[in-house]
Design a protein around this nucleic acid. Structure first.
Lengths: 168, 168
DNA sequence: GTAGCAACCGGACCGACGGTCCGCTTATTG
DNA sequence: CAATAAGCGGACCGTCGGTCCGGTTGCTAC
């Protein structure tokens, strides 16, 4: 059982980290920042979450941006799936980018699940990974930066998914 | 005109950096390492190359891994182009990954050139970026890590490029 | 209530890294 | 050979992720 103060601190840290990353992006957020914003000492962060990657993973898992949420989407076509994935990523871009940059844990179980599911829809594991490469947070941020609109990207992703699925 | 000793140091630094990155990967190579390996002081590195990103850019530009080289490839079909790109990336994986991780300079002129050329072959700018996303060093390293062979990836890339081109 | 204990806390501390600075050295030129 | 500007090296700095430990506090058993 987790002590009451510990639970309070965990919640405060998650909230602080989420907000800071959302508004500044992971590169401009240090652990000290998060600890200060949550009103706790730095040691507490590491006690709770192990390391920076652990904190970010916990943040993402506590939001709609994790593969866990994605794995339970109900969906028929490749295009539909890709569209949903895109919406998930876009809604939490800074968080997704943060987790991409810090964790090797994309290899977790739920990610594999998503890959397999996608592979069935688009004909091959390679194509599944190709689609996911296009859906990476950094890729989408880059395209937005290039001046593409979210709608254009969304359409492109869906069209790509359907094109791949058509060859099956 | 660059002084003789300066030129010698530049060459030594490029050689040292190239070798170290190739054998250890960028994450395990610090500027101090490079300076020591080249037998010069740390200040010299920054005098010559400005910052770490500048050094890596210079390393890549001095090899076959840069967009500059790629832009001058002579090629007919999307698949052929993609295959050549893949070979370039694979041959210098650690270098490509290094430059991806450190520079915002992927937006340089030669990169744009490649995007435009590819866009003509595969029908849209979005599709061009999608292909390039799949050809990123980190993506390829990830797939290799997952157990795919280079040949499988190469085939997948070419097939993807041709599929996209077919829709034009 | 209170005593005892384990879990917890905070922040001083550490090593590594990218980057700066400046007094000394050296290649170059006339 | 003298003058000078370019170059050099490594001590130094600020920041960051991560560790450590002496003091504190929530919980439980009596």
């Amino acid at each position: 059982m987790e002590r009451a103060d510990a639970a309070r601190n965990r919640a405060a840290l998650l909230a602080a980290a989420t907000e800071l990353i959302r508004e500044r992006g992971i590169d401009a957020v240090s652990i000290d920042d998060v600890a200060a914003a949550a009103g706790v000492g730095k040691g507490t962060v590491f006690r709770r979450f192990g390391d920076k990657a652990g904190l970010i993973q916990a943040v993402v898992d506590s939001t709609a941006a994790s593969w866990h949420q994605v794995a339970s989407l109900d969906v028929r076509t490749a295009g539909e799936f890709a569209g949903q994935l895109f919406d998930h990523v876009l809604a939490s871009l800074p968080l997704v980018i943060a987790v991409e940059r810090t964790s090797a844990r994309s290899c977790e179980a739920n990610f594999q699940l998503t890959v397999d599911r996608l592979a069935r829809l688009v004909g091959s594991t390679f194509n599944a990974h190709a689609l996911l490469a296009v859906l990476r947070g950094e890729q989408i941020a880059f395209l937005l930066d290039q001046g593409m609109t979210a709608d254009e990207i969304r359409a492109g992703v869906i069209s790509l998914a359907d094109t791949l699925a058509a060859g099956v």
